[in-house]
Design a binder for these strands. Sequence first.
DNA 1: GCCGCTTACGCCATTCGTAAGGATC
DNA 2: GATCCTTACGAATGGCGTAAGCGGC
Lengths: 325, 325
Amino acid sequence: MKLQQLRFLLAVVDSGLSFTAAAERLFTSQPGVSKQIKLLEDELGAQLFSRKGRSLTAITPAGEQVVEHARRVMYHVESIKSQTAEHRDEERVLSIATTHTQARYVLPDIIARFRDQYPEVKLNLHQGTSEQIAELIQRDEIDFAMASGSDEHFEDLVRVPCFQWDRIVLVPVEHELAKLDSKLTLEHLAQFPLVTYVFSFGRESSLTQAFNVCNLKPDVVFTARDADVIKTYVRMGMGVGIVASMAFDSEQEADLVALDASGLFPRSTTWIGFKKNALIQPHMEEFIHLVSPQSIDLDFQGVTGSGADAVAHIDFSDWPLPVLD
Amino acid sequence: MKLQQLRFLLAVVDSGLSFTAAAERLFTSQPGVSKQIKLLEDELGAQLFSRKGRSLTAITPAGEQVVEHARRVMYHVESIKSQTAEHRDEERVLSIATTHTQARYVLPDIIARFRDQYPEVKLNLHQGTSEQIAELIQRDEIDFAMASGSDEHFEDLVRVPCFQWDRIVLVPVEHELAKLDSKLTLEHLAQFPLVTYVFSFGRESSLTQAFNVCNLKPDVVFTARDADVIKTYVRMGMGVGIVASMAFDSEQEADLVALDASGLFPRSTTWIGFKKNALIQPHMEEFIHLVSPQSIDLDFQGVTGSGADAVAHIDFSDWPLPVLD
DNA sequence: GCCGCTTACGCCATTCGTAAGGATC
DNA sequence: GATCCTTACGAATGGCGTAAGCGGC
């Protein structure tokens, strides 16, 4: 048995039972993968995959067991590598994929504090849609995903909640709503064209959903990936902006007025997530603690247990989370 | 990194930091071990061993960490092998090293029941002294050690207690002590030449210790490895025999008389033990449960945890143990 | 006919054993 | 000088990539 064979096996499983995809992911040839898997099956004397003709159809029960152990093997192998890499001072990297809102308004502070503690760690900040973030983390190209909402793309991740936030409504100072003296309602908003974030593909956004339950039809005239763009169009008078509360600084941007919308839309939770069997190095754990101070009691390394497995089943749902604004 | 390198590393550590001994244990050449360790150190970029000149003196902190993970890697690798071996019906073996008393008087019943459940498993019963048993289990040549007493040789093992037993005194029917109508005392025994088990090397046996605390000097004229030999010499009138209670069947051996000695010597505990990181396959676990019914609640496999580690730290000390006689 | 896994084959890297070298006691 | 680890070198093995084969859809 070779480590390479176990690595291949896991890649095949994680590529949706495709030798071809696994080979691409591992930057090697497809026949090589095929051969090593076959050798492994021969050595173990058990079929790991069910085949129909020459295509893989499923993983066998024996294969499942092997995969479980193989994951742990690779986890400990990675631990050996990362621990010794840390022992000398080799290049360490922290790669995060997140949305614009977090990258622009939340992470700067956190990253500044992180740099104080780990000035030698290189930071890699990827920005993208939920789909892109999910893709990156699934392909192991980043260490952490950070986003809001419970997208179906992230179901396999261990997600540690960080904080909550509400939306605000932005209008130009001269806008009708800026002079509103009663409390802002959805009915008010439904009367104006709206400018807000692009909706995540597939499911109904929590924003349109909020309107729907009141039998209102929001008139979303423009959507953008980030609040800066939205604000630009709000300034142009294109519509009323709805953005995350932390995306607006009333002192810096006196030409806009923010109206509290915390009661109108469900509160969002921003979390940081990683793959279940991910290896969490000390500097990565520190980053989690920085974005989620509540997680300070969790030990993500668990030299004794199998790393992230220890936290994979922790119920975060009743954590008291800070609300940002 | 290669599995072979981790295997070599562990062998070196388990051979007392000797490349030569590790090579012998692994049936390979010493330069091969040397080279692979060096390659591993190069790849990891860390010294795993401290060297004085060309000899190993100690394992470095980094090495310790690597060893810990390497053990787990090998554990899961072995799990993969054994689980798939079990999936097809390959030859499975159960190797036990124990003392004569257990092998001759205790294990027959247990092994009979074991064979009922796992008729296809080959059994390997090694018999020897404490030293020999310890040697066998340290060299991974057997699965289980089974013995009594808390020999220093077995300190590294996970030991599951099975049952307790007392000693009996054996004399020919015509012997003076056979006619004793009062309770047997150490003073009585001190008046006769004694025949008993060879003392384990190094420390004072619990038997001589019992005499010592009463300021008596036992006259041990003959020691043997097993009760059958002792009985032979008792029959010859060579002395009074002191053996384990289960080593005598009053119906089968009417020419000898057994006197209860349970109050005179400390009660002994027989345990079954295995190395901390040993892989416990289901048939092995069943064997533990057979020799130690109290252990039925323990799960020795722990697919989730790291196998035997889960039980390595369980405190058995307050278990109620059956007393055999 | 296209896609995807398997087989065949040749090249290169790695491994392992033997033999020789160096360091320490 | 004995012991133990390291280095050197040649034979054998194994891994990997290219190219061809084959089974489903």
